[in-house]
Design a protein around this nucleic acid. Sequence first.
DNA 1: TCGATAGTTAACCATTAGGTTAAGTGTAGC
DNA 2: GCTACACTTAACCTAATGGTTAACTATCGA
Lengths: 147, 147
Amino acid sequence: MVNYREQALDRVFAALADPTRRALVAQLEQKQSLTVSELARPFPVSLPAIMKHLDVLSDAGLITRSKSGRTVNCRLTAATMKSAMDWLHRYERFWSEGLARLSALLEEDESCPPTQVLLQPPSQASPSSAASTPRRPRSKPRGPTRK
Amino acid sequence: MVNYREQALDRVFAALADPTRRALVAQLEQKQSLTVSELARPFPVSLPAIMKHLDVLSDAGLITRSKSGRTVNCRLTAATMKSAMDWLHRYERFWSEGLARLSALLEEDESCPPTQVLLQPPSQASPSSAASTPRRPRSKPRGPTRK
DNA sequence: TCGATAGTTAACCATTAGGTTAAGTGTAGC
DNA sequence: GCTACACTTAACCTAATGGTTAACTATCGA
């Protein structure tokens, strides 16, 4: 059971990690039901690519599809999105506390050095060495190392 | 700017799509700061694998790292997690409305067939044909089709 | 009945992800 | 100074991902 829930979270977060899929979900937010062709129309990629994305969203429990004649209608379903939300809620105090601590710090004596707050700007998107010390030089190329 | 936010969401959802990384985040929920070795200890994979996961979490703005002597301390940061939460909030009405409609349906005359509600059990995790009609037989193998 | 529409899926490709081992670097303690 | 500890990173591997084209099937309307 726990494993199943974990796998469901895997799929929901993975499904939402792609900008095309989030854009598909956003369309379905605007309109209750859309056909596959209507969903595909704004995107520059091929129809089978969109169909693959819809497969991923369906596997994640984020949409349902129903066929009517030759068209397939897609609708949002939200149960698994709610479970992702619940998971994120566990960390709400980390930004709430950060904001609260910021407020408290502003009221303290200015001679008192501020403690580090949790809310921090995100690191730059790059292969990172996010340790506060300067990045050390890369080690020398090694050539084939596999035995 | 908008693109930057989209890319940030890409990274946050992708970072949380892996069970190992969610487990790393959960450890940091329990304890304010942990070293890389402490974080790695519960996992059956190699230390460089954990280091790669920490890189992904850092790139997503979910942790910060600071070096003290030979140890690196990791802490949760929550700003980008909050942005994922905000994105999911857009869909809150889809499970709220679903629940409300379920309540309304329960109060209706039982002879009235229920309309389809939005909250539905997630589909089984498998290559899916989630259309309500039975899955059609696979088409015949085609052999190489590339020109 | 036939052509158009809507969707489906096999086969393929390039890239990325998640793991490994091996070798390396910086720091701490004796 | 030397060894151990903590971490870092190159090079490699397999599997998965996100896209394509081509060929196919089901349905609709003339």
